[in-house]
Write a protein that binds this DNA or RNA. Structure first.
Lengths: 325, 325
DNA sequence: GCTTGCTATGGAATCCATTTCATAAAATAC
DNA sequence: GTATTTTATGAAATGGATTCCATAGCAAGC
């Protein structure tokens, strides 16, 4: 109800002075400042932030696009983002897209509409060209490598990381290796698939189509994989699985069925998720938390500096040796 | 750059007409509508939503306060909220509070500032009186029972649910029951503790202080509980554990140590989380997804109707019998 | 032929804070 | 004692939409 004009009238000053008090501007006398603060208190006044956003052209909010909030992979990244956002007093708007292009574009439109100051895209169904179109309206950073685009990115070298996993398995003597992936058409999935096929070919390893299994997202998907492994006429000696949660499901189910791990089957996980530590799964740590944190730091830096210069940050990875191989 | 005035000038109409086109108002002739749409296209125009928010006094955004995004308990509720938000074209602003009162109040201040239209509080460090103060500025709904307050709530009868779990265990013959809880001072934790003590007293069950274990949040906390159980001079026959994830950690670790479950130790979980299905944990399903969905539906209804009348919705629960008891 | 109702349009007020510009007094410089 | 800088204050412009109110043409009602 009360607005700045009302406060000014009641405190016997101009709206400019009220605004100065509100924004801690130095050039206000002690008396007037006190009078204004008093009136504000009395009328239980707060600014209408929409007016502030309109006039300043900023909102102090950053949107995050991610397919699913609760998937472990994303929630680790999200934690990194949230931590940094907290530190820089920035509001986060979370958009769960379910990989819907339409939903993701809606978020980019918010940037164009000036509802938000920037966008962090954790994973996306959008083509890089579409994202690029929106860089005119504000900073965007993705958590995927899309080459040298007009927007920033923080990324993992999935190809190299996956090969390193395979190398580790062959070093340990595994000659037949199966592979569990999440969404078949995810951009990182495509890269890993190439890494897998290349490695198999280069090392002349035996290979069967049924050893490549897709759509493994949850623990239960992992358990289902264990079942299908048991039914295979020829089972691989090792499985490399993108996501420790899925690996956990596979391991629990395989052990229940009497398989010894790593004796009968070696398992390499991915992403160093908490459950992996519990089950002592050997895994590749992709530093997902750091990925989220870095993404937010970049977007925040770009928002506050007003710079449109994109940054490309490559993260490293490392194998954590535990006891499933 | 371009604004509605510019569009009006170029299209040769008034700003009112442009606004009508923008808002699909019927009283605009075909020609003018076409001319306006044409100019909009040409100038690549979009509304500045901050101006819209200012004049309409609405933003179409709802904030969600929750302590941790990634904790399973919360992320299930969050999924329910997100699904409903998507359906009603509402933006969600996620605020991870880490149980910080200051952070939570910041969100309520956003309601006062008119940055958001409503708040869903999933779990809170705030006293009900503080929340009540803010109901003057817009609808608030909590996912906790705080009695008949001036804000809505969706809640589970923790007391009854917990007792039912205990009853189930005693029906199955357990005479000594331990108890794992998350945050000791959480409002639901306090209720469950009372339920536990009451039940023990009423049924004259043996009891030891060390059977009540707090701060069990993750799988690894559960694993640690398994270790401490092993070291107890007198170990309870059953454990009731708030959260299947924690129960999973306990079960995995206990089995690794050679304990048979349910033979040597019966385990009852909570919340029917995915991992529980995999490990066949007997659990109490609290319908958390539905809780989130209901909370959002209530807030949305209150926003669109402008009603301040609080709603109180009690959710039911049910035991899912599997094989850890 | 006069009243009523619908369609179409625009002017101006409104939402509420920030910021530029202008002005003047007080303090400091030289 | 004049010139310059610093402090203090307010009027008015600005950001960009929505909406109330007024006006007017035209069709329908009786």
């Amino acid at each position: 109800m009360a607005n700045i004009k009302e406060i000014a009238r009641m405190a016997g000053v101009s709206v400019t002075t009220v605004s100065r008090v509100l924004n801690n501007h130095p050039y206000v006398s002690k008396d007037k400042r006190a009078a204004v603060l008093d009136t504000i208190e009395q009328l239980n006044y707060t600014r209408n932030m929409n007016a502030v956003h309109l006039i300043t052209g900023r909102t102090g909010a950053v949107a995050v696009i991610l397919p699913y909030i609760s998937a472990f992979y994303f929630s680790i990244i999200m934690n990194g983002i949230a931590r940094e956002a907290l530190l820089s007093q920035c509001r986060l708007i979370l958009c769960q897209s379910n990989y819907s292009v339409e939903e993701e574009i809606k978020v980019l439109e918010m940037l164009r509409n000036k509802e938000i100051d920037g966008v962090v895209i954790v994973s996306t169904a959008l083509k890089p060209e579409i994202i690029e179109e929106y860089t005119a309206y504000g900073p965007v950073v993705t958590c995927q490598d899309s080459g040298q685009r007009r927007y920033s990115s923080v990324y993992i070298e999935h190809y190299a990381a996956f090969r390193q996993g395979l190398q580790y398995l062959t070093d340990k003597g595994c000659r037949t290796i199966g592979y569990c992936e999440g969404r078949q058409n995810g951009s990182s999935a495509v890269i890993r698939q190439t890494a897998y096929r290349d490695f198999i070919a280069e090392h002349k390893l035996a290979f069967q189509e049924e050893w490549m299994i897709y759509d493994c997202i949850t623990e239960e998907d992992g358990a289902a994989v264990a079942q299908s492994l048991l039914e295979m006429p020829e089972r691989p000696e090792a499985m490399i699985i993108t996501g420790d949660h899925v690996a956990a499901g596979l391991i629990i189910e395989a052990r229940r069925a009497g398989l010894s791990i790593p004796g009968d089957l070696a398992v390499m996980g991915f992403d160093n998720q908490p459950i992996g530590r519990l089950l002592e799964i050997t895994t590749i740590d992709n530093h997902l938390y750091e990925m989220g944190a870095a993404a937010f730091r970049i977007i925040h830096e770009q928002i506050s500096s007003g710079s449109a210069e994109p940054t490309y940050r490559k993260l490293d990875y490392r194998i954590i040796e535990r006891s499933t191989i």
